[in-house]
């Protein structure tokens, strides 16, 4: 089972020397260990959420706004894709990540099969597209058409050779949030922050420029009805 592990930062808990030290000391060993175990497929930190852009297309016009899709104080600072036996294993892996000791990690299963490219070059992980549903479901016909359009869209992006990997996520209600406090693993049912908007999937792109990624976000079928967030990956 493939899970999206979201690194969720609570700004109120950030910046303590204790947290900073734990991150500096433990993130790298975590990555090495999980790669060696074969439970981590890829992962990378994301640029400051202030540099995120959210794209919508209404009446044929592309509207770009600053910031992430949901306006919350907590934000997503990075992600990993995990390949685990079961949710229990994913929880164990997340609970060993220092972010869960001070902030939170959200685990979301992918819906259906996730294609993993044979060669994953870290250099090619450049931008992240997050198609979001903003809480208002469309009619069944629209939803069905959307699914077909999304398949066609993925083929288009693949043809350009800029899609590294990605896919739809299972419903937000299947998410589990992991926090470790006083040595105890605490779980909660659902996403790390409850908003009416929720992530419908992710696509990792290797575009030459951020503008090209914005253009692809605007071409995403969900941009016409909902919105698509675009983030930049940064090096660890």
């Amino acid at each position: 089972m493939k899970y999206l592990q979201l690194i969720c930062i609570d700004p109120q808990a950030a910046g303590t020397p204790e947290a900073a030290q734990a991150m500096a000391e433990h993130v790298e060993p975590w990555v090495r260990d999980k790669d060696a175990r074969g439970v981590r497929i890829l992962g990378k930190p994301l640029d400051d959420p202030a540099n995120a852009r959210t794209v919508r297309v209404r009446d044929g016009r592309t509207l770009i706004s600053d910031g992430p899709f949901a306006d919350t104080k907590e934000f997503i600072a990075g992600l990993d894709i995990l390949d685990c036996e079961s949710l229990d294993e994913a929880i164990e892996v997340a609970a060993e990540h220092p972010v869960s000791w001070f902030h939170a990690i959200e685990l979301r299963p992918f819906a259906g099969e996730l294609e993993i490219p044979a060669h994953l070059d870290d250099e090619r992980l450049r931008q992240l597209l997050i198609p979001c549903i903003d809480g208002i479901p469309e009619s069944d016909e629209v939803e069905q058409q959307l699914r077909l359009d999304i398949d066609a869209y993925r083929e288009l992006v693949d043809a350009r050779g800029v899609r590294v990997m990605g896919g739809p996520l299972a419903a937000a209600s299947t998410a589990t949030t992991v926090r470790v406090r006083d040595g105890k693993t605490l779980l909660s049912d659902g996403p790390f922050v409850e908003t009416k908007e929720f992530m419908a999937g992710i696509d990792i792109l290797s575009c030459e420029s951020f503008d090209e990624a914005l253009e692809l976000a605007g071409a995403h079928p969900l941009a016409r009805f909902h919105r698509v967030e675009v983030r930049r990956f940064v090096d660890l």
Partner: peptide, 21 residues
């Protein structure tokens, strides 16, 4: 329904937990 859907979609294992859990 929501609970059953989560068990299936998130692969909550159908098992007696291992000794450490």
């Amino acid at each position: 329904t929501r609970a059953r859907a989560k068990i299936a979609a998130a692969a909550i294992p159908y098992r007696v937990p291992p000794p450490e859990l």
